[in-house]
Deep mutational scan, measured.
Amino acid sequence: EQLARLKREFNENRYLTERRRQQLSSELGLNEAQIKIWFQNERA
């Protein structure tokens, strides 16, 4: 579920704002660094 949600977010926007990253962190139970790194890896 977390992965599917991250992929949906990535398809909508390849870059997250700090606020959006905080929201996802709270909703998915991941820390902000994990989300940031995931997005960086997807863009690579």
Rank of each mutant, 00 (worst) to 15 (best):
E1L: 11
E1S: 10
E1D: 12
E1C: 13
E1I: 10
E1G: 10
Q2M: 12
Q2W: 13
Q2G: 04
L3V: 09
L3E: 08
A4T: 06
A4C: 14
A4I: 08
A4R: 10
R5K: 06
L6M: 03
L6C: 05
L6G: 01
K7V: 08
K7A: 07
K7L: 12
R8K: 13
R8S: 09
R8Y: 08
R8F: 09
E9Y: 07
E9G: 02
F10S: 02
F10N: 02
F10K: 02
N11A: 15
N11T: 09
N11K: 13
N11S: 13
N11C: 15
N11L: 14
E12N: 11
E12Y: 08
N13M: 04
R14L: 00
Y15V: 11
T17Q: 03
T17W: 05
T17D: 12
T17H: 05
T17I: 02
T17N: 11
E18H: 14
E18G: 11
E18Y: 09
R19V: 13
R19K: 14
R20L: 10
R20I: 10
R21Q: 13
R21A: 15
R21M: 15
Q22K: 15
Q22T: 08
Q23W: 12
Q23M: 12
Q23D: 08
S25A: 14
S26A: 14
S26E: 14
E27V: 06
E27Q: 07
L28I: 12
L28T: 12
L28S: 03
G29P: 00
G29M: 07
G29I: 02
G29Q: 05
G29W: 03
L30D: 01
L30S: 00
N31L: 10
N31F: 06
E32K: 05
E32T: 07
A33P: 02
A33F: 13
Q34E: 13
Q34S: 10
Q34P: 00
I35W: 01
I35K: 01
I35D: 00
K36G: 12
K36L: 14
K36T: 15
K36A: 15
K36Q: 15
K36Y: 13
I37V: 09
I37D: 12
I37R: 12
I37Q: 13
I37C: 14
W38R: 01
F39G: 00
F39Q: 01
Q40W: 08
N41G: 04
N41T: 09
N41C: 14
E42Y: 09
E42T: 05
E42L: 10
R43A: 12
R43K: 07
A44D: 12
A44H: 09
A44L: 13
A44S: 09
